[in-house]
Simulated scan of single mutants.
Amino acid sequence: MLDTTQSDTAAPPEERRGCLFALSQPPLMIFLAVIGCLLLMASLHDLLLL
């Protein structure tokens, strides 16, 4: 017969990680910073040079 009782050494359940955890990842922040800089440069170009 299989032992289906949980032992004391069982791993704790995984924590739920939400959107703020995803935004704290460095590759995503670098990507968002590059996109933001490109949008800023395009908007300044339109406002000041055209």
Score class of each variant (00 low, 15 high):
residue 20 L to N: 07
residue 50 L to Y: 10
residue 12 P to Y: 01
residue 20 L to W: 10
residue 11 A to E: 14
residue 22 A to W: 06
residue 16 R to C: 11
residue 5 T to K: 10
residue 26 P to W: 03
residue 16 R to S: 15
residue 44 L to E: 12
residue 25 Q to C: 02
residue 8 D to T: 14
residue 48 L to G: 01
residue 25 Q to E: 09
residue 13 P to C: 01
residue 48 L to A: 03
residue 5 T to S: 14
residue 27 P to L: 02
residue 43 S to H: 08
residue 3 D to I: 11
residue 23 L to D: 06
residue 6 Q to P: 09
residue 36 G to E: 05
residue 38 L to Q: 05
residue 14 E to V: 13
residue 9 T to P: 03
residue 43 S to N: 07
residue 21 F to K: 03
residue 24 S to N: 08
residue 30 I to Y: 02
residue 19 C to L: 15
residue 29 M to F: 02
residue 15 E to A: 12
residue 7 S to G: 15
residue 15 E to F: 00
residue 29 M to Y: 01
residue 8 D to Q: 13
residue 18 G to F: 02
residue 35 I to C: 11
residue 41 M to F: 10
residue 45 H to M: 10
residue 15 E to M: 05
residue 26 P to Q: 02
residue 41 M to T: 13
residue 19 C to A: 13
residue 16 R to N: 12
residue 40 L to S: 14
residue 44 L to R: 11
residue 30 I to H: 02
residue 18 G to T: 01
residue 8 D to V: 13
residue 16 R to I: 14
residue 41 M to Y: 06
residue 37 C to Q: 06
residue 25 Q to T: 06
residue 23 L to M: 14
residue 43 S to R: 09
residue 34 V to S: 03
residue 19 C to N: 07
residue 39 L to A: 14
residue 29 M to T: 01
residue 34 V to T: 07
residue 24 S to C: 06
residue 30 I to W: 03
residue 11 A to Y: 04
residue 46 D to Q: 07
residue 32 L to V: 07
residue 24 S to Q: 08
residue 6 Q to R: 13
residue 6 Q to N: 09
residue 25 Q to N: 04
residue 38 L to T: 04
residue 47 L to G: 04
residue 6 Q to A: 13
residue 47 L to V: 04
residue 26 P to G: 02
residue 25 Q to M: 04
residue 22 A to L: 12
residue 29 M to D: 00
residue 15 E to P: 05
residue 44 L to I: 13
residue 1 M to F: 13
residue 50 L to T: 09
residue 19 C to H: 10
residue 30 I to D: 00
residue 27 P to M: 01
residue 11 A to L: 15
residue 43 S to Q: 08
residue 13 P to D: 01
residue 33 A to I: 03
residue 10 A to H: 01
residue 31 F to Q: 04
residue 24 S to E: 12
residue 42 A to V: 08
residue 40 L to V: 15
residue 24 S to Y: 00
residue 14 E to H: 10
residue 26 P to F: 03
residue 45 H to E: 10
residue 24 S to P: 03
residue 13 P to G: 01
residue 17 R to S: 08
residue 45 H to A: 11
residue 48 L to H: 00
residue 16 R to H: 15
residue 46 D to V: 04
residue 12 P to A: 01
residue 10 A to V: 01
residue 11 A to V: 12
residue 5 T to M: 06
residue 28 L to F: 10
residue 3 D to G: 10
residue 33 A to N: 02
residue 44 L to C: 14
residue 46 D to I: 04
residue 31 F to Y: 11
residue 18 G to A: 04
residue 8 D to K: 13
residue 34 V to Q: 02
residue 18 G to H: 02
residue 35 I to F: 05
residue 5 T to I: 08
residue 50 L to C: 07
residue 38 L to I: 11
residue 22 A to V: 05
residue 22 A to R: 07
residue 41 M to L: 15
residue 18 G to S: 08
residue 4 T to M: 09
residue 23 L to Y: 10
residue 21 F to V: 11
residue 17 R to Y: 06
residue 7 S to C: 14
residue 30 I to A: 07
residue 27 P to Q: 00
residue 20 L to G: 05
residue 48 L to W: 01
residue 31 F to W: 07
residue 44 L to A: 15
residue 1 M to W: 12
residue 23 L to K: 04
residue 50 L to S: 12
residue 22 A to G: 04
residue 25 Q to L: 07
residue 11 A to S: 13
residue 1 M to G: 14
residue 35 I to K: 03
residue 33 A to Q: 02
residue 50 L to N: 12
residue 5 T to R: 14
residue 25 Q to H: 09
residue 6 Q to M: 09
residue 2 L to I: 09
residue 41 M to E: 11
residue 38 L to P: 00
